[in-house]
Design a protein around this nucleic acid. Structure first.
Lengths: 232, 232
DNA sequence: CGCCTCTGTCACCCAAACGTCACAAAATAT
DNA sequence: ATATTTTGTGACGTTTGGGTGACAGAGGCG
């Protein structure tokens, strides 16, 4: 299961994609315009973007560029939907950083297979992200290992994901709802102490680095953005 | 830059591959049939062959065999393109001397990455990859032989490939999905204990070196990156 | 100062994940 | 053809991790 953003102005196609992707067990976000799409991409941090190149307000290539330029969104895999051979040529070189493309008209089945192919690699192991080194904390995403002051600590899968997620959204408060959604991949069901408990365990395990995770009362949790001195 | 021969009967895919490989700076030759392909391979001596297994006139395995048998063409690296469901040949192709295979549909980016990986090895040439010597473990990739403490152990084809794959991705966790795709060459349908079982058999056979293969609960398996307690 | 809400903490129980085994199917050798 | 090896799969037992609810403590607000 992954979070997939579809940017496509043609309503029919949008519906078809949405339905089929959901059917395949994915969470689907949709946008009919480039501007909305960009905003959604930044806010919701999807795993994969299905991008129509021909949009009413801006070209898909611009979107592509914009996303790849920003480190926070550069990790999003992009699958381009393109209609014309001419467009194809420009994109195909992957100068834009797209992972794959499909030429319209395509069969839905074909598309789904490609989506799987991309997610198979992308979701679990994206080496494209910046390494995590923050104060006494060091994280190897690919190895799934964490060190505090050069001493390795063992985190469980969820603890690891929680840490990485918070760190990647440094200085932005994450509500429990958002965390449940992104780390656990479940719908918000806020009556539990699940998040708190895991934050507690995480803080405990990472010792000194536990201070980097700040509680924002009434809102959620936040990874500190700088080491000592407070707000600038 | 390298010279790459593509043997693929599906016209669309052929075009896409040709374009992208050229874009990546390679010289590309194409053939739609096995016979033409063999001829080209002999005449032009490419560095790499992208080989579809399902061809109109002859099977890809035959081509593979023919090329590997002739010392003049035995040095050509081969990357097999195989469709899902087209069984066989993961092991067969491997034993025939293919360097890698990719399951259709693949993302173009993924393919390009693999092509690069193969060519990179090819540069240093000589059966290519760095030799595997790690602790008490020693592996001869070409001879398909494995020693533990100078004592040879017999591995089956899959066990061997599993070991090599894990080792080549030292210190990077490989999920079962990825392993199924890369070692077995099948789409991920995880409801089985296939990977576990093979890891178990492998660990058993390689004795002391079994410890090098670490389980990362909730994620996958990982080959240790150094021998003892490590920091860094 | 007191109340109320939100968070930290703990211990328990269940379920998911893994290791292991045995067996059947498939491939391969004889 | 039969014998043997190799592989995939379902069942089972074990372990670990994670969700839950209760409770205490802290922080905020009037």
């Amino acid at each position: 299961m992954a979070r997939i953003l579809v940017i496509e102005d043609e309503k029919d196609l949008q519906k078809v994609l949405e339905f089929n992707l959901q059917q395949a067990g994915h969470e689907v976000l949709t946008a009919g315009q480039g501007k909305d799409g960009l905003k959604l991409a930044r806010e919701r941090d999807p795993d994969l973007l299905l991008l129509d190149l021909m949009l009413p307000d801006m070209s898909g290539t611009e979107i592509c560029k914009a996303l790849k330029k920003d480190p926070r969104t550069a990790g999003i895999a992009i699958l381009i939907l393109t209609a014309k051979g001419e467009e194809l040529d420009r994109v195909v070189g992957f100068e834009l950083g797209a992972d794959d493309y499909v030429v319209k008209p395509f069969s839905v089945r074909e598309l789904l297979l490609r989506v799987d192919a991309i997610l198979r690699r992308g979701v679990s192991e994206q080496g494209g992200q910046p390494p995590i080194v923050f104060g006494c904390l060091r994280v190897d995403r690919e190895a799934h290992r964490v060190w505090i002051d050069d001493k390795e600590v063992e985190l469980t899968a969820i603890e690891f994901k929680l840490l990485v997620t918070l760190h990647d959204r440094k200085n932005r408060v994450q509500s429990r709802t958002v965390l449940l959604n992104d780390v656990w991949g479940i719908e918000a069901d806020i009556t539990t102490r699940t998040v708190d408990t895991h934050v507690k365990r995480l803080r405990e395990k990472i010792g000194a680095a536990g201070d980097y995770i700040e509680t924002v009362r009434g809102v959620g949790y936040r990874f500190a953005d700088s080491l000592e001195g407070d707000t600038r």
